[in-house]
């Protein structure tokens, strides 16, 4: 059995980490699937999904590390008019951070529960906000 669900976020900052663990757990519970896998996948190329420990110190460190790895003020090529959009490209750092963080995560479902480690939370990362974002949750398995 496969169950798909999607939800939307309106982010409020240029770069932002949003803990979406609760939303994923609810989706798994609603699916009724007892044994299987859950995949969490963003629909965008300037956002990320990853797993880490929910501590404000780590959130700051991760944000700082990404900003050092991908500075804003270097001459990226993705800074030009795009004919297919009719608008300017101006978010190269968002694309690169998205690539570094990845667009998805996956967890086993055992006996109806998402098998998260004690320090594991699921984060949605905004790298070009504020924006409207959609995240897919796909649950695969058996009742």
């Amino acid at each position: 059995m496969v169950k798909h669900e999607a939800f939307t976020l309106l982010t409020e900052n240029y770069n932002e980490m949003i803990n979406i663990t609760k939303r994923v757990l609810e989706a798994v519970k609603a699916s009724g699937i007892k044994e299987g896998l859950v995949a969490v996948i963003t629909k965008h190329t300037t956002t990320g999904i990853t797993v880490n420990e929910c501590l404000e110190c780590l959130e700051s460190d991760i944000d700082l590390a990404l900003k050092r790895l991908v500075p804003e003020d270097i001459p990226y090529c993705h800074a030009r008019m795009l004919h297919t959009y009719g608008s300017t490209a101006g978010n190269p750092t968002g694309h690169i951070k998205s690539m570094l963080v990845g667009n998805s995560c996956m967890f086993p479902i055992i006996d109806g529960e998402v098998s998260l480690g004690g320090a594991q939370d699921i984060y949605f990362y905004e790298f070009d906000g504020p924006a409207r974002r959609t995240i897919n949750i796909t649950v695969i398995g058996e009742n």
């Binding site: 309106l10 409020e12 959009y85 009719g86 504020p130 409207r132």
Partner: peptide
């Protein structure tokens, strides 16, 4: 008409978020 081929609909809350940021 505008030549903005990929723009989706924007909820006003999103516009306010952009302005506030």
């Amino acid at each position: 008409m505008l030549g903005l081929y990929k723009n989706g609909k924007a909820p006003l809350k999103h516009i306010y978020n952009q302005m506030d940021y």
